[in-house]
Design a protein around this nucleic acid. Sequence first.
DNA 1: CGTTACTTTGAGGTCCGTCAAGGCCGGTGG
DNA 2: CCACCGGCCTTGACGGACCTCAAAGTAACG
Lengths: 258, 258
Amino acid sequence: MNDKTIGSISSHLEVSCDRCGISALCLPGEMGDAERTALNRIVQRARPLRKGAFLFRAGERSDSVYALRTGSLKSWRVTPEGEEHVTGFFLTGEVVGLESLANGEHTQSAIALDTALVCRIPIEQYERLSEQVPAMRRQLLKVMGRELHDLQDRLADARHAGAPATLAGFLVNLSDRYARRGLRSERFNLPMSRGDIASYLGLTLETVSRLLARFQQQGLIEVHARDLHLRQPAALRELARCNLHGCPSPRAPDSLTE
Amino acid sequence: MNDKTIGSISSHLEVSCDRCGISALCLPGEMGDAERTALNRIVQRARPLRKGAFLFRAGERSDSVYALRTGSLKSWRVTPEGEEHVTGFFLTGEVVGLESLANGEHTQSAIALDTALVCRIPIEQYERLSEQVPAMRRQLLKVMGRELHDLQDRLADARHAGAPATLAGFLVNLSDRYARRGLRSERFNLPMSRGDIASYLGLTLETVSRLLARFQQQGLIEVHARDLHLRQPAALRELARCNLHGCPSPRAPDSLTE
DNA sequence: CGTTACTTTGAGGTCCGTCAAGGCCGGTGG
DNA sequence: CCACCGGCCTTGACGGACCTCAAAGTAACG
């Protein structure tokens, strides 16, 4: 709504794909200069999304996917009963909207959790371009395949893991994703609320809050509001791999019975 | 549509794509005869898998996806701790192995739950062929997009839904998939064991057993071993949409504890 | 400084997992 | 035919993890 911000940010909007650090979808690596400029031409740079602004809404027609240049988003769907379930968080450098490729319609909504810059990639043109670039052709499949794999990971955890492991897994997952982008991985800011985390993990807000407190008093993390500091990333990672019955405490005395 | 299956299995193997009822991946509909024969050439028909035989194993290199002609499969992965988690069931007409597209390696194993006929589709050749057929190009993305969507559905349920809703949802999901292939949808055979179902849904074997018994005494279903009869599909569908807090029982007045 | 949204903390209830024992059924061998 | 066996399934009692309800504390924003 605030149009005067555009002027100051237009310099950002003009950053070409050469400078853009997003490699997931746009830069398969083996691209030559010619392909890169071609890609640069089809990618559309939108103006920044303010916090709380929609990138897209469930039910809208879609002919694109989006690459998140900076900032973070959350996506969610509304169940037939009217409950909102957070389905994902997207950090700088990640790809949003793949699920709409199924039938050209968004099945969920996405909004900015903070100011976000997004590149729109029309899927039709991307595919046409990718006909000439084998590496690009595989890249989209790779991204979707990885998405499938991640979802199966989460699904495997969802039931078997228990709340502490689930939350710990969430934290190290965030950490890993920041690390992949070259950002600090032990100290970062949670862009989402406790309620968002709870909804995403299928826990309650209270349980998330309690567990964060517990992790802190165990010395695993430090949290102040949304500033998060992973003090023992290895221990957290270990905790994430425990199921309900498995490991009660950071250190298990007798671990083998074979 | 039952031919003389006894004559020789090779007769089945020689069924061309024209006759094959699988439309998910192979037959985008808009294909002309030329494309269909081209597709027919790249699809490789394997010999039938006996019950318990592997289609592929986790860790194997992969350059293909598979279309299930007849029979059923299950897929599972082994956690770092050594536990086996069932990740999916595949019925006649469905596509298996998409997750391997991420990095060309299978992340899970798949075996036949009964005698199964499978078509192998080398992904490289499929893509090359699809360059000339726009409809095919979109088809693979569609299938994967739908897969993404289904996984998100399951994930949304996994935590929020509670065991009865989860199991009910599983049953109607199976029913829908049979219906989509033109098979009986309210009476069919469960190709998998209770333990498989439990692992897949993240429940225990005992809970699955108890709930099936409960559903039966509520008149929702009839089960004898693995023969399943959905007596009130609508009620089951309704039950599947209830969360823990939501709907206690089909009928409030007469469902008191005995 | 007041309002609102978010977060923390506590107490009680319940669903479902764990442990344990017993049935059903097909297969195998006497 | 029966006895025995092993896989699969059923049924029961118990306890714990996490949800629900409730209220107070804190940060964000005008």
